[in-house]
Amino acid sequence: MISTASAVIGSRVSVGHRMLALTWLISPLLLLATWALVAASGHYSAQLLIPPADVWHTFKDLLHSGELLEGAAFSLRRLASGFVLGASGGLLFGAALALSKTVEVYCAPMFHVLRQVPSIALIPMFILVFGVEETFKVLLVTKAVFFPVALATSEGIKAIPRSHFEVARLYRLPRYSLLLDVVFPAAAPPILTGLRVGLTRAWMVLVAAELLAADSGLGQMIEMGRQMMRIDVVMVGVITIGLIGFVLDSSLRLLERRLFRWKAIKE
């Protein structure tokens, strides 16, 4: 009797919660409705303010024709190659910077100067040096990933408490084990954050590079849409860019939560 009563209350609470969660949708739906109404009113030309339904149709067209997926595939391939290069380089260099006095003395000043230069500002320079082909885009992504990862790795390793190293000394851990069992796990949370920051920046810079100079990729699709005044194509592209960025960031966040369950703080 009591248990059924509490079950009823429980389900009522959860229904209430679900209803409350739905309120998060109010403003996006309102925005969509306003957009549709204003577009339908005909005050603005359909070329500038295209109805949401048309954007949806364009999205389906682009999806079915394979154009959208092809563009995304080109962009993601560039992102992946640059990310792998930049992340592994950043990881190695950051570790060397933190662990070797020599590397620090010779390389740290230049590293800290170079990381001040925004990736965006390098686009014209990279175009002149490497041309407008793949190299320029992949290297731009590499640069955008390398610096945050190297910085996070070096600071993460430097922040490892001395007591961890003392334990390693006490049990005379071999060098490989010191790196594998102590240094990298201890520095892994800041390193993963660095990877996440690097990925976000790389995605932004890559889209920018594709807008400026590319014959393929999502950025190029958007730029073509702009030149042909196809605002629906531009919007589909912009939304896709946002979605991909969101998915990339969320999956790394999920990975963070998964990997670092040992970090769970006692409340």
Partner: peptide, 26 residues
């Protein structure tokens, strides 16, 4: 928060320079 947060977080996902073509058209 209920009204602004969803819009803010949606808009925030698009890399700022990716919005340039749209802004340029408008």
């Amino acid at each position: 928060e209920r009204l602004l947060a969803p819009l803010y977080h949606m808009l925030r996902q698009v890399p700022i320079l990716g919005l340039i073509p749209l802004i340029a058209l408008w």
